[in-house]
Design a protein around this nucleic acid. Structure first.
Lengths: 217, 217
DNA sequence: AAACTGCCAACTGTCGACAGTTGACACGTT
DNA sequence: AACGTGTCAACTGTCGACAGTTGGCAGTTT
């Protein structure tokens, strides 16, 4: 059934994927500890690969390691969110600038598609799904064509998702976000790097404030 | 002599430090492979902790993992340098902006000290040591008071150091760098975030060009 | 002689077991 | 009753050994 390394992914790699999923979905709730023997048995693997998986997720910021105590799912306060968004702003503003100067027509089509889908969903009474927000930022990132920045944004995004569990999206915020996205696309289409950066900064500032507000009850 | 976890650092943690040193100093040259059993014996530890150390360094970008082949010290070409500096520019420009708005008088004193030491060394006929360049950027980073950005810059800096082995510092470049540093300090002292960002971008652009030139023989 | 095939050593991926540390509970003391 | 102490179970850190895969080499074929 499970030969050591059949063809594609090592046990450690599979464990990384499974654990990441469980942490991001909250199946393993923030603040809880990850028991090595217990999880290893549940995944049907040994402690060795699982340990590697845990360390990997810790390097991504999805787990925090305490010597001789184990790995914990971090639960953040408003202060952490603010600090994290400083990094995200630095990365995504730079990405927005690069996208404005490097985007192709295909990139613009994709960006318009995502924005249009968000609008239609919203007008149909559906809430603006976080999935589409992620898709927009990912598409913009692809247009920037900077693999290292993209990789770092991916890691930060993950951590934001981890903290997003308690976030109740309210309609005003959703509307403002979609407006920001549209404005970003316009700036990128015009090749206006400075404006793209400015709009992105304002957008992320808004999102950050929203998250901090919902974290403070 | 070596109980499992004597008091402070795990064997894996120690191995990380030793290996990082060996990789950054070029003791383990770029392109070479890291043999697990060999290095483990040389460090007097088992393969388990060493594997964790290897994975950790890989997550920092100091090693690249190839399934079933092992870990290699990456040797980069000009294209990689350019891509890496896009990330570094995004991070350090943001840090420069934050430093301009958050710096205290103590930060300014420290920045002036580093610049002064660089100048005096240079005028004494000594080459501008890379150590002082790192110190300057680190001091500026401290003034920005953004731990996440600082951590990411540290990782990128490491990778730059890894590629720096073949870099011959020529006096014109050193002089220009010191001028950039002085100009940065002025902007930070004035609290001029926009100017700090601009100067930092120009500075890193110069350093990047210098590195790419020396990589192309 | 060049290309293909089968074998082999070296190394990574994985596992189970042992040793040391940590936090907690129970007990005794002040 | 509150505090300090000793003991203990649970867990992490570490180790040595086995299984599977990879790349290279020798031998054979065309």
């Amino acid at each position: 059934m499970t030969p050591p390394t059949p063809l594609h992914l090592s046990l450690a790699g599979q464990a990384v994927d499974v654990l990441r999923e469980q942490v991001l979905t909250g199946e393993i709730p923030p603040g809880s500890r990850v028991n090595e023997v217990e999880v290893a048995q549940k995944l049907g693997i040994s402690r060795g690969p699982l340990r590697e998986a845990i360390r990997h997720l810790a390097s991504e910021g999805l787990l925090t390691l305490v010597p001789h105590r184990g790995a914990f799912v971090p639960d953040a306060d408003a202060e952490d969110v603010k600090a994290l968004f400083e990094l995200r702003t630095a990365l995504e503003c730079a990405a927005a600038e690069l996208a404005a100067s490097r985007r192709t027509d295909v990139d613009l089509v994709r960006l318009h598609e995502v924005c249009a889908e968000s609008r239609s969903n919203y007008k149909a009474g559906q809430p603006f799904p976080y999935r589409l927000d992620l898709a927009f930022h990912q598409t913009l990132l692809d247009a920037a064509r900077s693999p290292h920045i993209a990789e770092q944004v991916r890691l930060v995004q993950q951590r934001v998702v981890l903290l997003r569990s308690a976030l109740e999206d309210d309609p005003p915020h959703q509307h403002a976000s979609m407006d920001d996205h549209d404005e970003l696309v316009k700036a990128v289409a015009d090749g206006d790097a400075a404006r793209a950066s400015t709009v992105m900064r304002r957008h992320l500032s808004r999102v950050c404030a929203q998250m901090m507000a919902s974290l403070n009850h």
